[in-house]
Design a protein around this nucleic acid. Structure first.
Length: 468
RNA sequence: GGCCCCAUCGUCUAGCGGUUAGGACACCGCCCUUUCACGGCGGUGACGGGGGUUCGAGUCCCCCUGGGGUCGCCA
């Protein structure tokens, strides 16, 4: 079987968003599955629009999610001499020509066509021009697209695509400053780099016939195409920065694990039966672009959160600890970190949430939940708490089980339900009603801090809540 | 508007002529439980509409509707 070569070819005009990441992932998986090559190529032919920051941001995102690529990053801006040769070749062979139409003329033509309700398009006025070129115009180079017939290609996802030749303009392959344009260089590079499978967003579907024109004019072999339907936002509309088209690194800052993001993205448009959870290895083993759905799919945050929670739950504590430091939680030297993390990783949807919950336990509460107070501070709650304090003071608890025993003894001695003591205690310790096991919380903060928090709480609320 | 693509629960999807239309997220209920979660069990919920083809259509064809993409000297 021939070697599979795929590529991801972003333009460095901004950060990488999840649509691009998914495309990159699909290409990467397909190459890795087949033991082939995955090329990263920066499409920076438009010198005016590129930024090094964008390239760096893309590389950074790749590194974070763990996608690698073969060989050096290819920059099209460094390959201009190659493209120039091919442009000259087409010119020499009469397959391309200089067009002296100015931008103003072109715009005017478009306006007229639009006014007449026609599709704006170049009228090919210089296709067979032999006269004296107008002075003062730096020409662009246009390729001769076929005048009639159909351009047909097989898409691995969508099936046979047929575009009538009239729909394809004699599009520009070199700007008036001599730099080549996208549809031209893509075809050349894909061919020269031996790319066999092009997996890309279906916003490129209409570019494909143009690129086929280039392949044919140059006699290059045409790769397989797979046009992946777009990712829509939660309302089923085009993804915008507001809902998901943000920087992939933003997901890191929000506390998502890369494996969760990748798992989420791989299932957006692709599936393998009923399987939801995929390790990277499984993805590599099972992914096939032919199984990609033809319909666009909507971005669904709660599914991502569910996956993230799943991966947090299954991540060993020692791996969680360094990741949590990005969220201001330093647990490396904490002697109760195992209890803390075991208790919290079951509850957190993101690392950020986990860090917040941990701090709510580690730090004495500054505020107390109003509704919680109303609900929990009933009956002889302060006497119960006081009773617990007395028992606690006499004991020397360290492990959760030690605290649990004292808790149970207190409750038993008073003959009330656990919650009558538990709820006020919970408020005293964390200021809120939800959270991990009380015995765990106390073991984490220790006996002295537990007593301090209860004392503070009693001083603040005991007298005012005395039943009348 | 022209052209191209698409259409199964709210969402992601399974389905590839004969299924009680399956799973997952979300939602609801129950269980577990000191609370909140997690987990377990159960439930609500879909083939956009209309014509064909066929003994039989979510699956094939056509039309409509709806959605998306694209129409740059951007990529």
């Amino acid at each position: 079987m021939a070697m599979v070569v795929t590529r991801f070819a972003p333009s460095p005009t901004g950060y990488l968003h999840i649509g691009g990441l998914r495309t990159a992932l699909f290409n990467w998986l397909w190459a890795r599955k087949n033991g082939g090559k995955f090329i990263l190529r920066i499409e920076d032919t438009d010198l005016a629009r590129n930024s090094d920051e964008a390239t760096k941001a893309i590389l950074e995102a790749f590194e974070w999610v763990g996608l690698d690529y073969d060989g050096e990053v290819a920059y099209q801006s460094k390959r201009f001499d190659i493209y120039k040769r091919y442009i000259q070749k087409l010119l020499d062979e009469g397959k391309a020509y200089y067009c002296y139409m100015s931008k103003e003329e072109l715009d005017a033509l478009r306006q007229e066509q639009l006014a007449r309700g026609e599709r704006p398009r170049y009228d090919r006025r210089y296709r067979d021009f032999t006269g004296e070129p107008p002075a003062g115009i730096k020409p662009v180079v246009r390729i001769k697209a076929p005048l009639e017939g159909d351009i047909v290609f097989e898409d691995g996802i969508k099936g046979t695509i047929t575009i009538r030749a009239e729909e394809v303009d004699d599009f520009i392959i070199a700007r008036s400053d001599g730099t080549p344009t996208y549809n031209f260089v893509v075809a050349i590079d894909d061919a020269l780099m031996g790319v066999t499978d092009v997996i890309r967003g279906d916003d490129h579907l209409y570019n494909t016939p143009k690129q086929i024109v280039v392949y044919r004019a140059l006699g290059l072999s045409i790769p397989k195409f797979y046009h992946v339907p777009m990712i829509l936002n939660e309302e089923g509309k085009k993804l915008s920065k507001r809902d998901g088209a943000m920087d992939v690194m933003e997901y890191k800052r929000m506390g998502y694990l890369p494996e969760a993001l990748l798992n989420f993205l791989v299932r957006l448009g692709w599936s393998h039966g009923d399987q939801e959870i995929f390790t990277i290895e499984e993805m590599k083993e099972l992914f096939d672009p032919h199984d990609i759905n033809k319909a666009p799919s909507a971005y669904n945050l709660s599914k991502l959160q569910w996956l993230n929670a799943h991966y947090i739950k299954n991540r060993p504590n020692e791996e969680l600890i360094p990741l949590l430091e990005e969220f201001g939680l330093y647990l490396a030297d904490h002697d109760r970190k195992e209890i803390l993390l075991d208790a919290l990783k079951e509850r957190a949807k993101t690392l950020k949430e986990l860090a917040t919950m941990a701090k709510e336990i580690l730090e004495a509460p500054q505020t107390f939940d109003e509704k919680g107070l109303k609900r929990a501070l009933k009956g002889p709650w302060d006497r119960l708490l006081q009773g617990f304090v007395e028992r606690l003071e006499r004991a020397d608890p360290h492990l959760p089980v030690d605290f649990r025993t004292i808790l149970e003894e207190t409750v038993q001695a008073s003959g009330v339900g656990f919650g009558k003591l538990g709820q006020p205690l919970r408020l005293a310790l964390t200021g809120r009603l939800g959270g991990p096991d009380l015995a765990d919380i106390m073991a984490i903060v220790g006996k002295e801090e537990t007593l301090r928090r209860i004392q503070t709480f009693l001083e603040r609320f005991a007298s005012s809540s005395e039943p009348g």
